[in-house]
Design a protein around this nucleic acid. Structure first.
Lengths: 213, 213
DNA sequence: GGAGTTATTGGACAGATGCGCAATAGCGAT
DNA sequence: ATCGCTATTGCGCATCTGTCCAATAACTCC
């Protein structure tokens, strides 16, 4: 249809691919589906992308990087390490839509057969771990958290959150997402020597009720 | 090839399907692959199975049920609830082969697009949870464990083990399986008020060293 | 050994998929 | 208005998929 500059076209292709992947899952995303969503012919796509594998990997990286940046910017808004961690949980838990989590689950499973996707998934996973590790290290050096091995602790935390993702997506109604989120907060508080409930967003003794006019 | 009784043939088909699924993953398993592994023609398979979906679901159920029964029989060999739990962890962790875990990961992801598989996966997940819940309930009533809500605790434990499965399979070399298994044991001990290390298979004060002749 | 039953064959069929390519149409410069 | 460049088309090709079916081979019973 309308002519576009190569960079803009490429971006629109990756974005459309991501939309289809959210709707249909990674394995069921075809070139023709993307073309239909984009309103163009299917031949166009292969002029911007050498293979379907490359396209899928790129789209996943786009989504994953967006997720990560959203979390990172949410964290950076905090005032101290505990607030950082609280914001991290908020941004992670605020999944208005299960399709984002389903995409991660798809990517994890699909990674075994797509080396490029595996590399991307691993890199992003380490970035998430690094984000949490920074928070914990800060918390330890400023004395508000207690943790012998921040790297191991952040690994455990990410692992727990992955388990939560999985249970929420794969066995949906067995347990509510809110309940699961609460449990993961309790585990983090216990892990880091924090007082229970402090990550729920309600600072004990500083609640905005009563005195507030 | 050689003629078989319908029941035996059906079993051999499901078994061959499972083998292919382990090797290639669920989504990449085709009728022709199964026929080749079986050494028969592809037409035969549809005389015993109405659709590929049914075959995949049945093969997954076979593998999952075997896993569950192996865990259940391992648990039943114990002498008390703590020993039951220890044996449960042993059987869960003793994954000589990642392909079993990869199969579960595949099933979780694939479940979104295959209703029959989703039902099977959910049912099996609840059975696992029930197994752990029984152990915890026994442990609580006999007083060796402390737990306010056995059902919630077993949910958390299964969720943690799923997260472990995922990290091991999807991001393999970041962390070793042994380390991950140890961490999940520590979490269980903490959750149930047990003394640290008691699930490692070495009962404190009853180690087979020194005095043993 | 022959006949009937049935497990098994091997390919046909329709649909879908990734990919490539000549032809076309849109846009900017002259 | 015309020309040249290139983004875009639309289809063709080879391959793979699940499903089905008439023909065939193997086994059993008489």
């Amino acid at each position: 249809m309308a002519r576009m500059t190569p960079e803009a076209r490429r971006e629109s292709i990756v974005a459309a691919t991501l939309a289809v992947m959210h709707r249909q899952g990674i394995a069921a995303t075809t070139v023709r589906d993307v073309a239909a969503a984009l309103g163009t012919s299917s031949g166009l796509i292969h002029h911007y992308v050498t293979s379907m594998d490359e396209l899928i990997t790129e789209a996943f990286e786009l989504a994953a990087t967006e997720d990560l940046e959203r979390a990172a910017s949410a964290v950076s808004g905090g005032t101290d390490p505990i607030d950082h961690l609280r914001r991290f949980f908020d941004s992670y838990t605020r999944a208005d839509d299960d399709s984002g989590m389903q995409l991660w689950l798809d990517a994890w499973a699909e990674a075994a057969r797509r080396p490029a996707l595996q590399r991307a998934s691993r890199r992003l996973n380490e970035a998430w771990q690094g984000l949490v590790c920074t928070i914990i290290t800060d918390g330890c050096s400023s004395g508000v958290m207690r943790c012998a091995d921040p790297q191991a602790a952040s690994w455990r935390l990410i692992s727990l959150l992955d388990g939560l993702t999985l249970q929420t997506v794969a066995h949906g109604d067995t347990v509510s997402a809110e309940q699961a989120a609460r449990w993961s907060r309790r585990a983090a508080e216990q892990e880091l020597g924090l007082e229970p409930g402090i990550l729920d967003g309600i600072e004990p003794g500083a609640r905005p009720s009563g005195r507030v006019r």
